[in-house]
Simulated assay, not measured.
Amino acid sequence: MFINRELHQKGWTKTAIAEETGFDRKQLVSKYINKDQVLQSKCKVKESKLDAFKPYELQRIQEGTTKCIVLFEEIQAMGYEERTTILGQFVKPYLVQKNKPQ
């Protein structure tokens, strides 16, 4: 991923750019924004072990199932061999949306 002054001009904060790229906000991001140079991310996108099961999980969440233990048992039967932590992190934003007052 390449970033430069354009992201900053689009409204991205230095903190957001730093989090996206993995660079230090105060030093590198500011330096590259001010000099209009291209900054290449040092972050490598790591594939989650849950990725193969996400389409199924999203379908189940849309159907109204948000209990992690139920979802965990279902994907475990499908071959998921990890713990519930990743699943809980994946489901959490959907719980917040569901419980938001309208």
Rank of each mutant, 00 (worst) to 15 (best):
F2W: 07
I3D: 01
I3H: 00
N4E: 04
R5E: 13
E6P: 03
E6M: 04
H8T: 07
Q9L: 04
K10H: 11
K10T: 03
W12G: 06
W12R: 04
T13A: 04
K14D: 12
T15G: 04
A16N: 11
A16R: 03
A18H: 11
E20S: 08
E20V: 04
T21W: 02
F23H: 15
D24V: 15
D24A: 12
R25K: 13
R25V: 07
Q27D: 04
L28D: 01
V29S: 08
K31M: 06
K31V: 15
K31N: 07
Y32L: 05
I33K: 10
N34V: 15
D36L: 05
D36F: 09
Q37I: 10
V38F: 03
L39W: 02
L39V: 02
Q40S: 13
S41G: 09
K42A: 02
C43E: 13
K44W: 03
K44G: 07
K44V: 14
V45P: 06
K46G: 11
E47I: 12
E47D: 12
S48W: 05
S48L: 10
S48D: 13
S48Q: 08
L50C: 13
L50W: 10
D51E: 12
A52Y: 03
F53E: 00
F53K: 00
F53C: 00
F53P: 00
K54D: 06
Y56C: 13
Y56R: 08
E57T: 15
E57I: 14
Q59L: 10
Q59D: 05
Q59S: 12
R60M: 15
R60T: 15
I61A: 10
Q62T: 09
E63F: 09
E63M: 14
E63Q: 13
G64C: 12
G64F: 05
G64D: 13
G64E: 05
G64P: 14
T65H: 07
T65I: 14
K67G: 01
I69P: 02
L71W: 03
L71F: 05
F72I: 09
I75L: 09
Q76I: 12
A77D: 14
M78H: 09
M78P: 04
Y80I: 06
Y80G: 01
T84K: 11
T84R: 08
T84S: 14
T85L: 03
T85F: 07
T85G: 06
L87H: 00
G88I: 05
G88T: 05
G88K: 02
Q89K: 06
Q89M: 01
F90D: 05
F90L: 13
F90Q: 06
V91F: 00
K92E: 06
K92Q: 12
P93I: 04
P93Q: 02
P93G: 01
Y94A: 00
Y94C: 01
L95H: 05
L95V: 11
L95R: 15
L95M: 07
L95D: 01
V96D: 04
Q97V: 07
K98R: 14
K98Q: 15
K98G: 00
K100W: 05
Q102W: 07
